[in-house]
Simulated assay, not measured.
Amino acid sequence: MTSEIRALLREELQGLSAYGAPQLDVAVRLNVNENSYAPPTEVVRAVARALEGEIATLNRYPDRDALKLRADLAAYLGHGLTAEQVYAANGSNEVQQQLLQAFGGPGRTALGFGPAYSMHPLLAAGTATGWVDGGRGPDFGLTASHVEAVLREYRPAITFLCSPNNPTGTALSLDVVRAALAATSGIVVVDEAYAEFARPGTPSALTLLEANPRLVVTRTMSKAFAFAGARVGYLAAGPEIVEAVQLVRLPYHLSALTQAAARAALAHADVLLSTVEQIKIQRDRIVAELRERGHQVADSDANFVLYRVARDGSADETDQKVVWRRILDAGVLVRDVGLPGWLRVTAGTPAETSAFLAAVETSDSLPAAVETLEN
């Protein structure tokens, strides 16, 4: 960007970098938490039929309110939800952006607890909403008392809670969500992008919706549904929240093709979600084997694992960027999330997990590096 254009950019956007991860052509890509399993043939055929049914009428605008899709999403979520309590958009990122457009903006603040999803502060900046990082404990946990204290201090218009959290994988107790709702008069958004991968007994904030009109739960079809390329995200909330978000949406924001594809996928939810248990097995395998080798590993309820590159509690002189490069040289792409000393890996197929663990073993056997390599 030239200095002339940079000077014209809004001040709060100057110096920022666009969200993204390296997109490299390597044998094993485990850096963006995709589902490694492609949609089964019967789902591919069902989506193709659904798209074919829409192509002949592409001269017409799609259903502006996506009512049939919203009804299908409500049925999938359960908890007595109806279409009036669900809203869909192009990925959960767009849903969250529209929440910020509706409830944030100049003079208002959004708050999250980092390390968390790095897109949230960028969405805040893009909507001219102030951002506060409330921080987490050294174990990446989040307590109700900490959340309450931070919210009472900053009084945000919007609070983001991630459960399971990205990049740590840790899930939240519902006591934390309740504490947030009690401590603020603003909107509380629980980002549950990875909820389908949670371990048994992990609660969903969906159970709190009926009694809390300021609560929003966002979800996505990108992860568990293996539908990342379709870009479908959604929220569940009270009808008033849905009405408010519709004030800032773009006209006909969700294409007829996207709606048709998503509905076909939801009709085959049992088939698509059959890979979730397989992925959880590989996630738990990664956690167990890395811990056996002496690595510190965050508990995970997601389809990824965050681990410390140094072993046996030793100091992190070995930069995570160097280890990232070593693993890449072994043909495996993982994610450097910018957390000093830590890397994140997506749980994939058994073969991909084996390739990652072999790459880590090779990296661990090399002497500590002193150089820093940029990724």
Rank of each mutant, 00 (worst) to 15 (best):
L8E: 13
L9D: 00
R10V: 01
R10T: 00
E11V: 09
E12M: 01
L16K: 09
Y19I: 07
A21Q: 13
P22N: 11
L24E: 14
L24Q: 10
L24T: 11
D25N: 14
V26H: 07
A27F: 00
R29P: 00
L30F: 02
V32I: 10
N33A: 15
N33E: 14
E34Y: 07
P40C: 00
T41W: 05
E42L: 09
R45N: 12
V47Q: 04
A48V: 04
A50M: 09
L51I: 14
E54L: 08
T57V: 08
T57I: 03
R60A: 15
Y61D: 13
D63I: 12
K68A: 14
R70N: 14
A74S: 06
A74M: 09
A75L: 14
L77F: 07
G80Q: 11
V86G: 06
Y87H: 15
A88R: 02
A89S: 15
S92L: 05
Q97L: 14
L100P: 04
G105H: 08
T109A: 08
L111A: 12
A116S: 14
H120T: 09
H120I: 15
T127L: 09
T127I: 03
A128G: 02
W131E: 10
D133G: 12
R136H: 07
G137H: 15
D139Q: 10
V147C: 10
E148C: 09
A149I: 01
V150Y: 00
Y154P: 00
F160L: 13
L161Q: 06
P164Y: 02
N165L: 01
T170M: 13
V176G: 02
A182S: 11
A183E: 07
S185G: 15
G186N: 05
V188K: 04
V189A: 07
V190S: 06
E192I: 02
E196D: 15
E196G: 01
A198Q: 12
R199P: 01
R199Q: 14
S204H: 10
A205T: 00
A205I: 02
P213H: 09
T218Q: 03
T220D: 06
F225W: 14
F225D: 02
Y234A: 04
A236M: 11
P239A: 11
V242D: 06
A244P: 00
Q246A: 11
L247Q: 15
V248C: 07
L257N: 06
L257S: 08
L257P: 01
A262Y: 07
A265R: 12
A267H: 10
S274P: 01
T275Q: 10
V276H: 02
E277A: 15
K280W: 00
K280E: 02
I286Y: 08
E292R: 13
E292S: 13
R293E: 08
Q296L: 13
S300T: 11
S314T: 11
D319T: 00
K321T: 11
R325Y: 04
D336R: 03
V337K: 03
G338L: 06
L343R: 01
G348I: 01
G348N: 06
G348F: 00
A355Q: 06
F356Y: 11
L357S: 09
S363P: 10
D364V: 03
S365N: 12
L366W: 01
L366M: 13
A369M: 06
E371Y: 13
E371N: 13
L373E: 07
N375R: 08
